[in-house]
């Protein structure tokens, strides 16, 4: 349904999107993940015909985004980043305006408006002006606007930013629901959100796609390794010297040390019973073990590894 081949977009010397190729079918929910300035918004803007590219092609439902842009736009519902809206219009007037331009037959307009108002929880706001809405409600109105013509493809740029936790969950459910039959592309900075809603993840870094796969596949990438968290009570130099020698351990990092105990993160190859071996190792050396646990390798680790920018992630929440 969407086919992107070698898309490139430059802003002066900056390459915002660098030779990006991917495709997506109906029934898929595609999550764009990437640090700030990665090129997520730019890619979406090209797909929605807001910007043109410097190279490559993109097709939506068989229509070229540069040649048949009006046909493409008819099939897409788009929520831009931070939901820009006309602040001097009434909420209902705004939805009527969009419904008219979206060519919804007059007889169905009020029903469609009612539907999207319902879906986005805007009932209490319909009497207000857009300028009076809080950020979260503007976001919802932006979403309502993108849903009004029941598009086969939905492109949402950070749809959950600014929403309250209840609404975030509702929007995620909505995305999953819509994604069953249609196609949704959305971007986010919340990592748990993609694993919760996406059927496929694209991780973008510096304008390039660095990973493309299901959440399980991506988490599996890092699964060649295993991370064990261990706390040992004993002489620090001794422990570290012995850990160096241990062939099982491919890497370790001290995360905490006090008079009581030292805590380490130990990385080893998978399938070696690392935890068990470490237990014996501690006993043999007559130290005492205060904590031992296997750490789950998360999407977060994959993200950090692929984008190589530790400060890029925000704490995962909800």
């Amino acid at each position: 349904m969407i086919e992107v081949i070698n898309l490139t977009k430059r802003y002066g010397a900056t390459v915002a999107v660098d030779n990006v190729s991917f495709d997506a079918k109906a029934g898929e929910v595609l999550g764009f993940l990437g640090p700030n300035g990665a090129g997520k918004t730019t890619t979406m803007r090209i797909l929605t015909c807001y910007l043109s590219a410097d190279g490559g092609t993109a097709k939506v439902d068989g229509y070229d985004v540069f040649e048949d842009s009006v046909e493409v736009r008819k099939r897409i519902g788009y929520l831009p980043e931070s939901a820009p809206l006309y602040t001097d219009m009434g909420v209902i007037d705004y939805l009527k305006f969009i419904a008219q331009v979206r060519d919804i037959p007059k007889s169905q307009r009020s029903q469609r408006i009612k539907d999207v108002v319902d879906i986005c929880g805007l009932e209490k706001m319909i009497q207000k002006d857009v300028g009076e809405l809080s950020k979260g409600y503007r976001q919802r109105l932006g979403l309502a606007q993108s849903l009004i013509h029941d598009p086969p493809i939905l492109v949402l740029d950070e749809p959950t930013s600014g929403l309250d936790p209840n609404q975030i969950i509702e929007i995620r459910n909505l995305i999953r629901e819509i994604g069953k039959e249609k196609m949704v592309i959305f971007s986010t900075h919340i990592l748990s959100e993609v694993s919760a809603t996406c059927s496929r993840i694209l991780i973008i870094n510096d304008g390039e796609i660095v990973a493309n796969g299901t959440p399980d596949e991506l988490a599996g990438r890092a699964r060649g390794e295993e991370v064990v968290h261990i706390s040992i009570r004993g002489p620090r130099e001794d422990i570290e010297a012995k850990l160096e020698e241990l062939s099982l351990v491919s890497d370790f990092k001290r995360v905490k040390s006090d008079d009581d105990a030292c805590a380490y993160q130990i990385v080893s190859q998978k399938g070696q019973n690392t935890a068990e071996e470490l237990f014996h190792f501690v006993v043999q050396n007559h130290w005492s073990l205060t904590e031992l646990r296997q750490e789950a390798i998360s999407l977060e680790d994959v993200f950090l590894k692929l984008t190589g920018n530790e400060s890029a992630t925000q704490p995962t929440d909800v």
């Binding site: 803007r45 929605t48 015909c49 807001y50 009006v70 046909e71 736009r73 008819k74 897409i76 788009y78 831009p80 931070s82 820009p84 809206l85 006309y86 602040t87 969009i98 331009v101 979206r102 060519d103 932006g142 606007q145």
Partner: peptide, 14 residues
């Protein structure tokens, strides 16, 4: 300035 042009120009209008 306020960015509404992004929605406007991605509507199916010439």
């Amino acid at each position: 300035k306020i960015g509404t042009v992004e929605i406007l120009m991605t509507l199916p209008i010439k």
